[in-house]
């Protein structure tokens, strides 16, 4: 517990001193979204139909960018080994890391969502759906992504590999989250999709820390 709090504090300070690490993926996220109207068509009707999907695909990519660094530095400088040696369980570390990752990637994306909704002419009825789907869905991305980051942390140039491992696992989140926004933009109920996202979040909270912890233990065997 002591080490969990100390790590939260240490990594928060690190993020504050290295703002590029989490601001760059956010800027990337915004740029990707701007590219869609430029590449496809700026008509409001069309944009409002694809808005949910565009935001969510961009969110997946932005999440991946910041995931790669989640454990890499800690594996390289021995912090991970030190945590392992402290006797504190590694799944606690996995939870702390996922929480930190969500705070610097998923949370800002969620807070930015109303702005994006305006830019992409999302119908008023879908604002809340976009916000809620991001709030429930992005933590799942951080938790699942943590497993991939733990598996690839010791591999040189692992960021492309990480994308290959993790993107297929993101499919259900993408489908239900973008589906919720789509339903909402048609004025249909979307609580079912949000409930699915909530269920996935609970499942990910319960299971992914164990998988991450098993993957982190492998780093010592290399």
């Amino acid at each position: 517990m002591k080490l969990m709090l100390a790590t939260l504090r240490r990594d928060a300070v690190l993020a504050a001193r290295n703002p590029g690490e989490w601001l760059n993926p956010l800027a990337f996220f915004l740029m990707v979204i701007v590219l869609f109207p430029l590449a496809v068509a700026p008509e409001p009707d069309f944009l409002s139909r694809i808005a949910g999907g565009v935001v969510w695909v961009a969110a997946l990519l932005a999440t991946l960018l910041s995931l790669d660094m989640l454990y890499r530095a800690d594996v390289e400088d021995g912090s991970l080994e030190l945590w392992h040696a402290s006797g504190e369980p590694l799944y606690a570390l996995a939870l702390v890391k996922a929480l930190l990752h969500w705070c610097i990637s998923g949370l800002p994306l969620t807070l930015l969502s109303p702005l994006l909704a305006v830019m992409l002419h999302l119908p008023d009825s879908a604002y809340l759906a976009l916000f809620l789907s991001l709030a429930l869905g992005t933590p799942v991305l951080s938790l699942l992504g943590g497993v991939g980051a733990a598996l690839t942390a010791g591999i040189g140039g692992g960021s492309l590999l990480l994308a290959l491992l993790i993107l297929p696992l993101y499919v259900p989140v993408l489908i239900f989250a973008a589906g919720a926004v789509y339903q909402a933009s048609l004025g249909l109920p979307y609580t079912g999709e949000l409930a699915m996202l909530g269920a996935m979040l609970s499942l990910a909270l319960a299971l992914t820390p164990w998988a991450s912890s098993a993957a982190l233990k492998l780093n010592g065997l290399r």
Partner: peptide, 22 residues
């Protein structure tokens, strides 16, 4: 891809097993 990227075969097998379980 994961198994192939890891040099140590012992680690590669384990990593592949964790990923396939997920």
């Amino acid at each position: 891809a994961l198994q192939q990227a890891i040099e140590s075969s012992d680690v590669g097998y384990r990593a592949g097993a964790i990923l396939s379980l997920v």
